[in-house]
């Protein structure tokens, strides 16, 4: 697939062109927090960022969304409320988060049941990745089969080489974009490609957290009853920061909202870390304490998900580590488990 170059001062032009044809989601900074949001003008996009605090999963799987509506007094139909299928570009997604979307696809687009709310938003989206030239100390994507410049799940990949980006078309969709907006791109010189390789190599070298996770699933098979969990869960507060900010966590709740005679059904993020998540109407709760709930989070990502979908449900983005109120560090847990 082809590689081009774009000067940084041409980025504005490129984004403006994209904005004419697509709804563009890009990293923006509000109140010191970086998140992905629909932008109206190219100037809103942040080019210099580590990663967003809330993962871009929220574009396809928002914190809460309406599923259908009905009239309570006169129940003759349930009116489906589906998101519109607009053409979107997700600009600036990091490779780890792109991989996370592929993992979410496995859940929401499983052979038995397809989730229309997720899929309608997901389908018409072009993924323009921004290679991760400055991995953070909490990043450990390479332990999970990812890489700062992994192309998995992307249509285009941008690599920052100083005053310009090398842009690689990965899929046909990506190539089409390169052709369609060829006026903003230049031919990539040999030196550009060499620079790109160097940036990539350097980025990989910057990742210091390395955990050998090949055997984690097998290891956890024997860990369910282990006293290990009694020890590690103690400091966990039981909030949902780790799961809500996780790019692969997908648990949700479903609820009805009523107003006068109209009713609506919503779904909203939920978390296995909440005590009430598994509480049954009878009062019985299979996951009684924080111990069971912390165990569930680790087991689900590194064992159950693997058994169901063949991959670990963690991409090593480090959000749960950076944002945990008590500095609960999943890397330490994993290191201990594999050692």
């Amino acid at each position: 697939m082809s590689e081009k170059v774009i000067q940084k001062n041409k980025m504005v032009d490129f984004l403006n062109e994209l904005l004419k044809a697509y709804k563009v989601f890009a990293p923006v900074k509000r109140d010191h927090i970086v998140s992905f949001d629909a932008i109206q003008s190219s100037g809103e996009m942040l080019l210099n960022y580590l990663n967003s605090r809330i993962p871009p999963k929220e574009i396809f799987f928002p914190r809460s969304e309406k599923m259908f509506e009905y009239i309570r007094d006169d129940l003759i139909e349930v009116k489906e409320v589906l998101p519109s299928e607009e053409r979107k570009v997700l600009f600036g997604i990091r490779p780890c988060d792109a991989k996370a979307i592929l993992l979410l696809d496995k859940v929401f687009d499983s052979p038995d049941y397809q989730d229309p709310y997720y899929l309608r938003k997901r389908k018409e989206t072009i993924f323009v990745g921004m290679g991760c030239d400055r991995p953070q100390s909490t990043c450990f994507c390479t332990s999970l089969g990812g890489a700062p410049f992994s192309e998995e799940g992307l249509d285009l990949l941008f690599t920052n080489i100083g005053d310009r980006f090398v842009v690689k078309g990965i899929t046909e969709e990506g190539e089409t974009l390169l052709e369609k907006y060829e006026q903003v791109f230049e031919r990539a010189k040999k030196s550009d490609l060499d620079d790109k390789l160097n940036v990539e190599k350097e980025a990989v070298n910057r990742i210091k957290s390395k955990i050998a996770l090949e055997k984690i699933e097998k290891r956890l098979d024997k860990m369910f009853e282990d006293s290990f969990w009694d020890r590690i869960y103690q400091k966990c507060l039981g909030c949902a920061v780790c799961t809500y900010l996780c790019p692969t966590c997908h648990c949700f709740d479903i609820t009805d909202e009523t107003m006068d005679t109209s009713g609506e059904r919503f779904r909203a993020w939920d978390s296995c870390q909440f005590a009430l998540f598994t509480l049954q109407a009878s009062g019985h709760n299979p996951r009684m304490s924080g111990k069971e709930r912390v165990r569930q989070r680790i087991m689900h990502k590194f064992n159950y998900f693997v058994k169901n979908y063949g991959e670990i449900a963690c991409v090593g983005c480090g959000r749960c580590i950076k944002n945990c109120p008590v500095n609960f560090d999943i890397r330490q847990i994993l290191l201990e488990l594999v050692s």
Partner: peptide, 24 residues
């Protein structure tokens, strides 16, 4: 088995026991 469920189609994560979803 009985578990708390929401979606019924193996997505919402609630009825997860080990690698099984009770609903699915």
């Amino acid at each position: 088995l009985e578990m708390r469920m929401k979606c019924g189609i193996g997505k919402c994560g609630r009825c997860n026991i080990g690698s099984k979803y009770v609903c699915r």
